[in-house]
């Protein structure tokens, strides 16, 4: 997002003499993780219907190791936030994210979850990345099931490239000011500013 530079991974650079067993173990663990992601659908609005279509017979999300949908955050490792998130729901989403055990990932499905979308008003959070960290943004309003599947495949690639020795991937939870997740209020205001056509539409008239 260009907010604060992500800290450098705090493991030593690969120099070709990394222990063989660590790299192979990484590959093995990641292979297991990426092919058995358990999604927790946090479905609020229209995108949840397209998520259901993706889970149904024609698109069949089970082909990607997601046969088991976890409706309890404590048994899930992928949060799919499908739909708009109003301010009243923001603490709920934050709580659900905190209830999920590590390792965990998040897909922000649809324009509303990613940026607030067309709901540039008093009630809607302008992007869930101001509440929880997001790994993959899937654009669309709502995204087609193929789009969601592509996002899932992108996440699988990301999961496949993680390294256990990179502690910065897992070591934080709370977005307190000292952590890399913290977004200062001025930045939240800045990224929530109206842009493009919406300036004309909202500032004209009243």
């Amino acid at each position: 997002m260009g907010l604060s530079p992500r800290p450098e991974p705090n493991f030593t650079e690969l120099s070709g003499d990394e222990p063989w067993i660590t790299t192979k173990l990484d590959a093995f663990v990641n292979w297991g993780r990426k092919n058995s992601l358990w999604p927790m659908p946090f479905g609020t609005a229209c995108c949840a219907i397209e998520f259901m279509a993706a889970a149904a017979s024609k698109y069949d999300i089970a082909r990607f190791g997601m046969e088991r949908q976890a409706f309890s955050p404590r048994q899930a490792d992928l949060l799919i936030c499908a739909g708009r998130v109003p301010f009243k729901l923001a603490p709920v989403l934050r709580r659900i994210w905190q209830q999920m055990p590590q390792p965990k990932w998040c897909i922000s499905m649809g324009a509303c979850a990613s940026t607030g979308g067309m709901f540039d008003n008093y009630a809607v959070v302008q992007g869930i990345d101001s509440i929880i960290p997001v790994d993959v943004y899937v654009p669309g309003c709502p995204p087609r099931p193929e789009g969601l599947l592509y996002g899932i495949m992108m996440l699988q690639r990301k999961v496949g490239n993680e390294r256990m020795s990179d502690k910065s991937l897992r070591n934080e939870m709370e977005p307190d000011p000292s952590s890399q997740l913290y977004i200062p209020p001025s930045v939240i205001d800045e990224i929530s500013e109206p842009f493009g056509n919406s300036v004309h539409q909202t500032r004209s008239g009243l």
Partner: peptide, 29 residues
Amino acid sequence: EGYPLRKDFPLRGRFSRSEQLRQALAANP
């Protein structure tokens, strides 16, 4: 922030986004 559908209520609410978010997240659901 008041009553949203009143005409003196701005479309984006009275508070800044960060303040709205802070107040919303301070709630314990």
